[in-house]
C-alpha cells in the first residue's frame, strides 16, 4: 500500500533573481514499510525535496499525496496539524527541547496531540526502552551524547504514531559507532513494527543498510534501486 505519492514535483527558488531549480520534476511512490535512503551530492536538492515531502515547504509545481491527503493544498494551520499526526521528524541537530528531559521530550509531542497522561507515560517508557535509553529517561539532552540524542529524537518521532518517519541526514553529526547503532535501531523498528522510514545521507555505511536507494542529481531522480 502506498503511503507517499508524488507527481511532477518542482521547486524553483527565485529569491536571488537567478532562478534555482532545486527540485526539478520528481515522480515517486513510497510504500508502507519501506526503508528508503535519498542520496546525492551536496546541493542536489535532497533537503528541498524532503522539506516539501514533510509539508514544511510548498512546491512550486506538483502534487504530494500522503495517505490520500493532498498535502500542498492544506492551509497553514491544517498543515501543522497534519504534520503532528502523520509525519515523524528527525533532523540533523536541534531535535530536542533542551530544558526537558528525554522522557519529557517524547511526552511533549503526545501532549501536543492531546493524548491522556496515562497513555503518554506508558508509550514514552516503551519507546525509550526500545531505543535503548531506559536508564537515561530523566537526563536532559545536554547530558546525552549525540547518538543518544538522535535516538531520543527517533523515539519522539515514533511517539505520535506517524505514517512515516522523515529524517534529513540524521547521522551527519555522529561518529561511526553511533551512526551504526542508530541505523541498527531504525532497521529493527522497520522490521519489527513495519515503520516506514525515508532518510537522506552522505554516508556510504548508511546507504548500505537501506533497502531502497534513490539518487538525486540536480533536482532529478537519476537512479532508484531496491535491494533484498
Amino acid at each position: 500500500m502506498s503511503v507517499i505519492n508524488i507527481k511532477n514535483l518542482k521547486k524553483i527558488y527565485n529569491d536571488t533573481g537567478v532562478p534555482v531549480n532545486a527540485v526539478n520534476g520528481i515522480d515517486l511512490t513510497i510504500n508502507e514499510g519501506e526503508f528508503t535512503a535519498i542520496v546525492g551530492p551536496s546541493g542536489s536538492g535532497k533537503t528541498t525535496f524532503l522539506n516539501m515531502l514533510g509539508g514544511l515547504d510548498k512546491p512550486t509545481v506538483g502534487e504530494i499525496h500522503i495517505n490520500g491527503t493532498q498535502v500542498e493544498k492544506l492551509s497553514a494551520s491544517k498543515l501543522i496539524n497534519f504534520r503532528l499526526n502523520n509525519i515523524g521528524f528527525v533532523f540533523q541537530a536541534y531535535n530536542l527541547i533542551p530544558v526537558l528531559t528525554a522522557k519529557e521530550n517524547v511526552e511533549f509531542i503526545m501532549h501536543l496531540q492531546g493524548k491522556p497522561k496515562k497513555e503518554r507515560e506508558a508509550r514514552t517508557k516503551e519507546l525509550l526502552t526500545a531505543v535503548g535509553l531506559e536508564d537515561r529517561m530523566d537526563s536532559r539532552p545536554g547530558k546525552l551524547s549525540g547518538g543518544q540524542q538522535q535516538r531520543v529524537a527517533v523515539a519522539r518521532a515514533l511517539a505520535s504514531r506517524p505514517r512515516f518517519i522523515l529524517a534529513d541526514e540524521p547521522t551527519a553529526n555522529l561518529d561511526s559507532k553511533s551512526t551504526e547503532n542508530l541505523l541498527d535501531m531504525m532497521e529493527k523498528m522497520n522490521k519489527e513494527e513495519n515503520i516506514t522510514f525515508v532518510f537522506s545521507t552522505h554516508d556510504a555505511r548508511v546507504v548500505k543498510k537501506a533497502r531502497r536507494v534513490i539518487t538525486i542529481e540536480d533536482g532529478k531522480i537519476v537512479s532508484d534501486e531496491r535491494k533484498n
Binding site: 504534520r83 499526526n85 536541534y94 527541547i97 501536543l112
Partner: peptide
Amino acid sequence: VKELGMLMAIGMNRMK
C-alpha cells in the same frame, strides 16, 4: 530560531 523551527515542524501550532 532553530529550536522554534523544529517545534513548528513537528506540529506545535502557532497558538501554542
